[in-house]
Write a protein that binds this DNA or RNA. Structure first.
Length: 633
RNA sequence: GGUCUCGUAGCUCAUUUGGAUAGAGCGCUUGGCUUCGAACCAAGAGGCAACAGGUUCAAAUCCUGUCGAGACCA
């Protein structure tokens, strides 16, 4: 519709002011701030005013006259080929000049029909579009260290990664999801050292701890002991050197610890829907990149300094100079030939791009790594890789706790498992305090009272079914709340984690959206059983069109466009905001417009379509965010 | 010190890439469940968009400077 209006406006401008003016003018078609102003708006009058030397009002007047004229001219003339491609003229029910904008009102028969039919046709794939040039994209995300459990920062990374992947897929790209497990380094050795020294052969099994937490506790223990005995830091370094040298004993310990942590993450990742098509281990790939550096040294992309370090000079244009007025450098190889983090990433990027024939490589990594990635991308460009310009570091801000930044070593972290369990528990309480929960406890009480009177086996199974249903719903709601909380702000901003707000199920939250969906589905279930509504074939769209309905339709219509923007800008918060606004518009519609008890069966049928398509859009939007919906909650 | 993110209601954030009267959520005040699910809806209070200039039909948005916060690099 938007595109057709653009054509219509261009045509009108061309006829009034000539093709030269029309070809140069850049105007937009958008939604007015308030639905009562109209369904679409264009700023063309303001843009043109300057060019043609008239006031916006005067320009608008002639354009409105011209467009109105079209309506009479071509309403039903098939031979008028120029306009037969779109019958929009007859679809416009009102045109007005307001605050500099020309506002269009579209007839319900055309607008509602078009949007509703499009959604009904596409169903779960409404919002999915095909970009002109589908790309092969790899997205790397999560990348945890094998010395501790996942925390809130990982959650933000994970949900952002998943939502971004979904959004890119919805644009028709082919996406490969990868993770890199950081299983090498001194931080791992610290956990190993503490375990070796004080562990006494304990295991996750013997202690009953989740294995990643088990290891994390040893890591914390190390920090505590190291505060008292600084020599431990040195010993951890020595352990790393032994690891590098391939010491059998150390390697064995390392593997045990590592595998515990990875096994410990598994259920957490499954619960949250984090998964990969391929996982890289740093211990496997940390030697990568050295040969590329050697080649680059020959080509003069890198240089060796007097100490024997191999360096990359960052372009001064983008990176500026350091204190001494020298260009900034990244060290690639130490004099002893050992490599650094950037070297590994360099090698890995090249390996991946070649193996998967990538058009684009996206790294979901925190903002503190921006310098690292900018440097990496700059050197890949300098090395002449064609795909280097398509690399992207999708960075996101820190998560701050009320008392400051999270630090694993000091134990000031929000543990992912704790948070998830807490949220599910809260959701459970919430459910139990409502209809289903009440029913369940009444049921439970009845069972106790009449224990002997009825078949207890049947009752038992009914109760356990009920309980597992509550569990299932609590999980969907609790996890939905966490994910939405972390996704509703654009990735670039820091999140000041507010425990109160994060556990809320009201307002701008995931459960609010899920609730709107459940309400809609409830109406649809009931409507389907009503004679004349459930079995109706014909829809009279002219019975729709109140302000609340138009506001809702606008949200439904703009959903695909929002996804496109979210993908283009790597901003999945746009999707979250849009889903919320859709749910909000639906709720407003819901309270102002009875559906099953509408004035007529015909009207009920028409409103059912709006309910159905709203539910579909909310569901699709939440799905992009990795959030499930419930038919009842 | 340099680079980069920022600075919008009491708090947490939006603002359709320069557009209409700067909007949401939370919190606060008030009203609405015998009518499709109140995890909801409606109304109200709350703003010099850090500050000072500039660019133009139009600036929270772009430019310059000042102040303040954070991250990274030394």
């Amino acid at each position: 519709m938007k595109h057709e209006l653009e054509q219509l406006i261009s045509k009108a401008v061309s006829q009034v002011f000539g093709p030269d003016v029309a070809s140069k003018v850049v105007f937009s078609v958008s939604y007015p701030p308030k639905p009562e102003m109209g369904d679409y708006a264009t700023n063309v009058a303001m843009v043109l005013a300057k060019q043609v030397g008239q006031s916006p009002a005067a320009v608008a007047e002639v354009l409105i006259a011209k467009i109105s004229d079209f309506r009479f001219q071509i309403s039903d003339s098939p031979e008028d080929k120029e306009f037969s491609s779109f019958n929009l003229q007859s679809a416009i029910s009102n045109l007005q000049f307001l605050g500099g904008f020309i506002n269009f009102t579209i007839t319900s028969e055309v607008w509602f029909k078009e949007v509703v039919e499009e959604i009904e046709k596409s169903e779960n794939s409404y919002g999915v579009s095909k970009v002109v040039n589908p790309e092969k994209i790899m997205v790397e995300y999560l990348s945890p260290n094998t010395n501790k459990p996942l925390h809130l920062g990982h959650l933000r990374n994970g949900v952002t990664g998943v939502a971004t992947i979904n959004t890119l897929k919805a644009q028709g790209h082919e996406v490969t999801r990868v993770g890199i497990i950081n299983d090498r380094g001194v931080h791992i050795c610290k956990a190993m050292l503490a375990y070796e020294r004080w562990g006494n052969g304990a295991t996750p099994e013997s202690t009953g701890k989740k294995p990643d937490h088990f290891v994390g506790d040893w890591y914390v223990r190390f920090a505590q002991e190291a505060a008292k005995d600084p020599a431990l830091e040195m010993q951890a370094q020595e352990m790393l050197q032994k690891w590098e040298a391939g010491d059998i004993e150390i390697r064995r310990l390392w593997k045990t610890i590592r595998d515990w942590v990875i096994a410990g993450w598994k259920p957490t990742e499954e619960t949250l829907g984090f998964s990969y098509d391929k996982v890289y281990f740093e211990s496997d790939v940390f030697q990568l990149g050295k040969d590329i550096v050697e080649q680059g040294l020959q080509k003069g992309v890198f240089r060796k300094n007097e100490k024997g370090n191999v360096l990359f000079d960052l372009p001064e244009k983008e990176f500026g100079k350091d204190e001494q007025g020298q260009s900034r450098v990244i060290t690639m190889l130490r004099p002893d030939g050992t490599s650094l983090y950037t070297t590994q990433d360099l090698g890995l990027a090249v390996t991946r791009a070649e193996e998967y024939h990538l058009d684009r490589l996206v790294y979901v990594v925190g903002s503190e790594q921006r310098f690292h990635f900018e440097g990496l991308f700059a050197m890949l460009k300098a090395l002449g890789y064609a795909w280097a310009s398509k690399l992207h570091h999708l960075w996101y801000g820190m998560v701050y706790l009320p008392d400051g930044k999270m630090k694993s070593r000091e134990g000031t972290v929000v543990d992912a498992d704790d948070l998830v369990l807490q949220m599910i528990d809260l959701a459970k309480q919430e459910i139990e305090s409502r209809q289903l929960g009440l029913g369940a406890s009444t049921f439970a009480k009845a069972m106790v009272d009449k224990k002997d009177a009825v078949d207890s086996e049947i009752l038992q199974s009914k109760i356990s079914n009920l309980q597992s249903e509550i569990e299932r719903r609590a999980k969907v709601i609790g996890i939905g709340a966490i994910k939405f909380y972390l996704l509703k702000q654009k990735p670039t901003v820091d999140i000041h984690f507010n425990p109160e707000e994060s556990i809320s199920f009201e307002g701008f939250t995931g459960p609010y959206c899920q609730y709107a969906y459940a309400r809609a589905r409830s109406i649809l279930r009931q409507g389907a059983r009503v004679k004349g509504i459930g079995d109706s074939q014909r829809i009279n769209y002219s019975l729709l069109g109140d302000i609340e309905e138009r506001a809702l339709l606008q949200k439904l219509e703009s959903f695909p466009e929002v996804i496109g923007r979210a993908a283009a800008e790597y901003n999945v918060a746009l999707v979250a905001t849009h889903v919320f606004e859709t749910a909000q518009a639906f709720n407003t519609f819901y309270t102002t417009h009875p559906v099953l008890k509408a004035d007529s069966i015909e009207q009920a049928v028409a409103r059912m379509k709006l309910v159905e398509t709203s539910a579909q859009v909310i569901k699709n939007g939440l799905a992009l965010l990795g959030i499930e919906v419930l038919e009842e909650m």
